[in-house]
């Protein structure tokens, strides 16, 4: 049998090398980014608007592009990348394909931070108070996690601590809704919790970009250690990896990524769960290689969903978190079905 025949017999995902996969995803991301800039409610000549921006002319098109479309596109990519890479990191740490970034309790607490800002009416005082509230919530969650689990915490302790923090955040969020001063406040909180990229300015980008980039670097640096964890904690430790330090690095990186994402968009579920799961066969199940690929995949999926939200003839506009849940739930059903048939 010729080598060429063997290669063509392999499924597509086994024929694509890591470098080619990264390149394809980056190209797809670039196409979707252009698509995200083109789609919107205001009619926009993208070429003319871009030209106006470059020449410093203050046209309506330039304003729409700079104030609305670019922040939305950039935030979509940043949030999607953050959720994707954090999901892959958590699945690698916990060695569980059903783990998602919110398992640490950071997203719940980030949401609570934003809800508190709404509840006390601070949201209107300054543009960045809302995301800052979310980031503060994520920071509190991280300190709680370190405090409860301790420096030398095992993986199971971290999961239990995350469940406890999530329950606490959920309870206080429900309490805020229960005691909301008026129905308008309840609507505002609920709408925000549904998750959206609409009406975010470039200030949001400037706020979260450095935090997210630090989080990405922290997570992507753990690639070799996550590969070694495939063989269990003892074997990974015997290969020279400091597991307590690794867990803390992953928790901090995930907190930076997810806390920042939730702070600017609200809760967007399933990206961190679905994307690593879909892309794992394409990197031949290697957790380390999955990190960057999941980040790119998360950005692609989020931009795709956001373009769909704006393209669908449904008004009021569907919330991004809702669309993600609609995409994610059938995926989970198919996953369960596949696991059943494999059992």
């Amino acid at each position: 049998m010729m080598a060429g025949e063997i290669i063509t017999r392999l499924p597509l995902h086994e024929r694509v090398s890591y470098g080619v996969l990264v390149t394809y995803l980056a190209l797809l991301l670039a196409v979707l980014a252009a698509g995200s800039l083109s789609v919107g409610y205001a009619p926009l000549d993208l070429h003319q608007a871009a030209s106006d921006v470059l020449h410093g002319e203050s046209s309506l098109g330039a304003l729409v592009l700079v104030e609305l479309r670019i922040p939305r596109m950039v935030l979509g990519a940043l949030v999607g990348f953050s959720l994707g890479v954090a999901g892959a990191a958590m699945q690698g740490l916990l060695r569980n394909p059903l783990a998602e970034p919110g398992i640490t309790g950071v997203s719940g607490m980030a949401a609570l931070g934003a809800v508190i800002v709404f509840y006390f009416g601070f949201a209107e005082t300054a543009p960045l108070v809302l995301p800052l509230g979310g980031i503060a919530g994520a920071a509190v969650a991280t300190f709680m996690l370190y405090g409860i689990a301790g420096q030398g915490a095992g993986t199971m302790t971290l999961i239990l601590a995350g469940v406890a923090i999530n329950s606490f955040a959920g309870a206080l969020t429900s309490l805020a809704l229960n005691l909301a001063p008026n129905p308008y406040a309840v609507t505002e909180i609920v709408y925000w919790l549904l998750g959206s990229l609409a009406d975010r300015s470039l200030q949001y980008v400037y706020l979260v970009l450095p935090l997210m980039v630090i989080g990405w670097i922290m997570l992507i640096m753990t690639g070799p250690a996550l590969d070694s964890l495939t063989l269990g904690e003892d074997t990974a430790a015997s290969m020279g990896f400091n597991l307590p330090r690794l867990r803390m690095q992953l928790i901090a990186g995930t907190a930076l990524c997810v806390g920042s994402a939730v702070a600017v968009t609200g809760a967007i579920a399933f990206v961190g769960l679905v994307v690593p799961h879909l892309l794992r066969p394409w990197v031949r199940q290697q957790p380390g290689k999955l990190l960057l690929v999941s980040g790119l995949g998360g950005a692609v999926l989020t931009l795709m969903a956001d373009v769909a939200v704006r393209s669908l003839p449904i008004r009021p506009e569907l919330k991004l978190g809702v669309v993600m849940a609609i995409i994610g739930a059938p995926f989970l059903f198919s996953l369960i079905w596949r696991l059943r048939s494999e059992a």
Binding site: R95, D227, S228, L229, T230, L231, T235, Q285, Q286
Partner: peptide
Amino acid sequence: YLAQSGEAHWPMRVEALVALGRLP
């Protein structure tokens, strides 16, 4: 160190898994 458990959580390829031995 070769652990007793024989754990391999992700169904990686055999060659990639052996290659982990070179990480140190």
